[in-house]
């Protein structure tokens, strides 16, 4: 075979030979640069084959299912939602089985050893250091009012994007054994890898990290959302529940103690740190509070907005006026800006 180049091979082809040839069918059905280049060349050097090429091509294009079955828009959406919803039904409380399974995979052994080493360290740490806090540590607290976002670099190289109306407390220099920070509000953390565990303390829970990036959002009423972008985190609540998060998973903990996992849209959840202000089918109250936080403004609402009022939009690094103009265009609001005071009416 290899002695003959393709030109020879295809020279003696009849219709059925062409039709049984993968490369030919590919050209007829999905022409691209590579196959077109070849077959056009071939045709020009074998002009007498034009007839059978046309026949073969017509045949290949004419074959279809007799009955065309449409999946339909309703099914499309319904099943898509059912698939995503099933994520949250995955029993959260049984991490053991999957953990053991992964122990048997060779390439995970190194990770497993590291993990057990770290848990050992953590264990000893909890037994000694944390129970008798080191008084020499200098704690720093950063507070962002509404409308202000900051990026904070910690001594270990960890980067923290702190959102508006949020507060973080961290040691000026981390101790030898553990890295702990205290968070109120929302932050996106890019935790530098290290043997010392990194702990984020929230009001009612604790996130344990090895080296990863994730978003934490804790509202005033202690509704917490933890969205993991990369790596692995372990979340413990006050009453001893423990949940592992995998990348692209979000843990939602309600203030009544209920929790579940879901997927998330990274732009919607983490976009804020790159100055994306996102509204996703938000009702008026949500839009109002997002604007208030984002721009640090006072909003006075005149008139009434129905529950059915919804707004969706995406703004990159826009001024307050442009965002309000954008909402005005599609969603029937009027506004007046007076410094840090905004009046919205309809």
């Amino acid at each position: 075979m290899s002695k003959y180049n393709n030109y020879k091979k295809y020279e003696d082809f009849d219709v059925e030979d062409l039709l049984a040839d993968e490369f030919f069918v590919q050209w007829v059905k999905s022409p691209d640069e590579n196959n077109s280049h070849f077959w056009e060349k071939w045709l020009s050097s074998n002009p007498n084959k034009r007839g059978i090429v046309t026949q073969a091509a017509n045949f290949a294009r004419a074959i279809h299912y007799k009955e065309k079955l449409e999946f339909g828009n309703d099914s499309y959406i319904e099943i898509y939602e059912a698939i995503l919803n099933s994520d949250s039904e995955i029993q959260i409380a049984s991490p053991k089985r999957t953990l053991w399974k992964s122990f048997f995979s060779l390439r995970n052994i190194a990770a497993a050893i590291l993990l057990s080493f770290c848990s050992f360290v953590l264990f000893s740490v909890f037994n000694k250091d944390l129970l008798t806090p080191n008084s020499e540590i200098e704690w720093v607290t950063s507070v962002n009012p509404g409308g202000k976002k900051t990026i904070i670099g910690l001594s270990d190289g960890t980067k923290i994007h702190l959102n508006s109306n949020s507060e973080i407390t961290y040691p000026e220099v981390f101790g030898d054994s553990i890295r702990t920070v205290f968070l109120k509000g929302e932050a996106f953390l890019e935790v530098e890898k290290g043997i010392r565990p990194f702990i984020v303390e929230l009001a009612n829970s604790k996130i344990e990290v090895l080296g990863t990036s994730f978003n934490v959002n804790q509202s005033i009423d202690n509704h917490v959302e933890i969205a993991l972008l990369e790596g692995k985190v372990k979340v413990n609540d006050k009453i001893g529940n423990q949940v592992m998060l995998a990348p692209q998973e979000m843990l939602v903990m309600k203030n009544n103690g209920e929790f579940f996992k879901s997927s998330f849209d990274s732009l919607e959840v983490i976009g804020w740190k790159d100055n994306y202000l996102i509204f996703n089918n938000d009702d008026f109250k949500t839009v109002e509070s997002k604007l208030r936080n984002w721009f640090g403004i006072d909003i006075e609402v005149k008139g009434t907005f129905k529950n059915s009022w919804k707004y969706t939009g995406k703004y990159y690094d826009e001024s307050l006026e442009n965002v309000l103009k954008g909402i005005e265009l599609t969603s029937d609001i009027r506004f007046r800006i007076d410094g840090k005071k905004v009046e919205i009416y309809n």
């Binding site: 089918n281 919804k310 707004y311 969706t312 939009g313 995406k314 703004y315 826009e318 442009n322 103009k325 954008g326 265009l329 599609t330």
Partner: peptide, 9 residues
């Protein structure tokens, strides 16, 4: 205007 309505989003 740089509008971003839901029909585009």
């Amino acid at each position: 205007p740089k509008k971003q309505s839901d029909s585009i989003f």
